[in-house]
Amino acid sequence: MVTDTGGIDDRSFNASAYLGEQNAKKDLGVQIKYLSSTSANDYSPNVDAFVNQKCGLIVTVGFLMGDITQTKAATNPTQKFAIVDYSYSPAINNVLGLTYQTNQDGFLGGYLAAGMSKTGAVGTFGGINIPTVTIYMDGFAAGVYYYNKQHSAKVKVLGWNPATQNGSFSGDFTSQDKGQAIANTEMQQGADVIFPVAGNVGLGAAAAVQANGKATMEWVDTDGCVSAPQYCSLFITSVNKGIAASVEAAIKAAADGSFAGGNYVGTLANGGVGLAPYHNFDSKIPSALKTELDTIKQGIIGGSISVDPKAWQSYAAA
């Protein structure tokens, strides 16, 4: 596995992919190795190193490695690859692109955040303005708008404007101080639920939320109570992305010979994305809200509820 610059302990997508590899090691007994990239300059030599080691499957992690994976797959047509957060059109027959419709569970997260907000404002921010980040924020905003429609409420979304596709970004996935600054700014503007979509940067936001005392937050990618247990008491829920399960599935396929290139899309329907358990908030979330979330989930799966923020844009609070 070649990670992006966050490294395997980013408590986010790199960590999830590595967890998938570790699970595969445990369940299937395969040998696993990883290389961390410290900058984009490392992508190519890192992939080459594993090609030279004749690995059964090379997992590259992250949207930013999309181009290099395509290039290496073309020069090494017999080498199998899987890439997290990227899909190819047309599909490449030795690359399995793993993508996730995180706007679906982001929608649920947004709805829940709006329902739990006492101040009438919720905040989000991203690491870098790339599709894999903003898809969460789009879903989150759409969920809040939908809540406004259902409850004739006026909950505001800070940090992301789906119409202009712009908002607050820390600029990387590592600087916790920036996460703290952005979360503080959003809380000063009235937000009391913060949803960072920025890997380790979110830990800075968690520190800010903890210091604030009244605000809460939602974690991203993995169950925050597992990946960042020190802040578990702050997390209403986590907006999950089933990277670990799909990476393990890809490794299993490569090991038993059933590997096929193409694209896998994780959805609420196939369990590839979803909300984590509510943990400490289980008793604090009104049961009516929980029931609504279940109904909405079925609505999204069935296609009757759109997760596109444009569909509900008119319910955005001014």
């Binding site: 290389l35 030279n52 080691q53």
Partner: peptide
């Protein structure tokens, strides 16, 4: 890079 790929000694 080779060292970590082969022996898992961190780069």
């Amino acid at each position: 890079v080779q060292m970590q790929a082969a022996t898992s000694t961190p780069v």
